[in-house]
């Protein structure tokens, strides 16, 4: 098994190669505005480090968000194109689950409740609640931190979104950024145990901004 994983749903551009046992190469760059430029070079780099080429890959793992739209689509369209061109399956995973898995693996959270929160911009966070790193108990949502303060009060919180709002998330723990290595490990675990994946479709959680113009603006004075 050779998994290529990447995620562009957060400010991080992260890519990793996993051989079924362990992460063999990983690259993470945080640059919220250059997902489109940096993803392919990152993929190229981790494959080279792993001593593999894309044709050796048996499955593509991609974070499906939630995430601010433009960057998120870079990862998803790249995964879909790889899947089509190589004829390999594309496994979607919730981006927040990757952060939860990373926190569990590094021991910053235990089997108790915690939340994961990423930056949704516009003074909102994407978030979900977990009971242990492998068990998400709410659907990912987008909210203003103040509106969920009671629901997350006192819980450990993982992710850069939590760190932005210390008045709401009072117990912030690492990691801050998404890691494709963690996402790949989670995928390898699910593949080994027959767990389920999400379709590689974006979790936007917001409707597109669009104003319906009210007729046309008259040019003559009223």
């Amino acid at each position: 098994m050779l998994l290529l994983a990447f995620d562009t749903a957060t400010p991080a551009i992260t890519a990793a190669v996993h051989d079924g046992t362990a992460v063999v190469a990983e690259s993470t760059v945080v640059d919220a505005r250059r997902h489109g430029e940096l993803l392919l070079p990152s993929v190229d780099k981790v494959l080279a480090e792993a001593g593999a080429s894309l044709s050796d890959v048996t499955g593509v793992v991609v974070g499906v968000g939630p995430g601010p739209y433009t960057g998120l689509r870079v990862g998803l369209v790249t995964a879909a194109a790889f899947g089509d061109a190589l004829g390999v399956p594309v496994h979607g995973l919730c981006t927040l689950d990757g952060l939860a898995h990373a926190a569990g693996a590094s021991g910053t959270v235990g089997e108790g409740p915690f939340v994961v929160a990423t930056d949704a911009r516009r003074k909102e966070v994407y978030w979900a609640r977990y009971e242990g790193p492998g068990r998400r108990v709410t659907d990912p949502a987008v909210d203003r931190p103040a509106d969920i303060a009671e629901r997350v009060a006192g819980l450990p919180a993982v992710g850069a979104g939590a760190a932005l709002y210390p008045e709401v998330f009072t117990d912030v723990r690492p990691p801050a950024d998404q890691s494709a290595g963690a996402l790949a490990s989670l995928a390898a675990q699910r593949l080994a145990t027959g767990g389920e994946f999400l379709p590689a479709l974006p979790l936007y959680l917001r409707r597109p901004d669009a104003q319906v113009p009210a007729g046309y603006k008259a040019v003559l004075p009223k």
Partner: peptide
Amino acid sequence: LVGVAAAKAYAYAL
């Protein structure tokens, strides 16, 4: 961005 990312992925994979 969607088209550019897709083109890169196909070019790289092929």
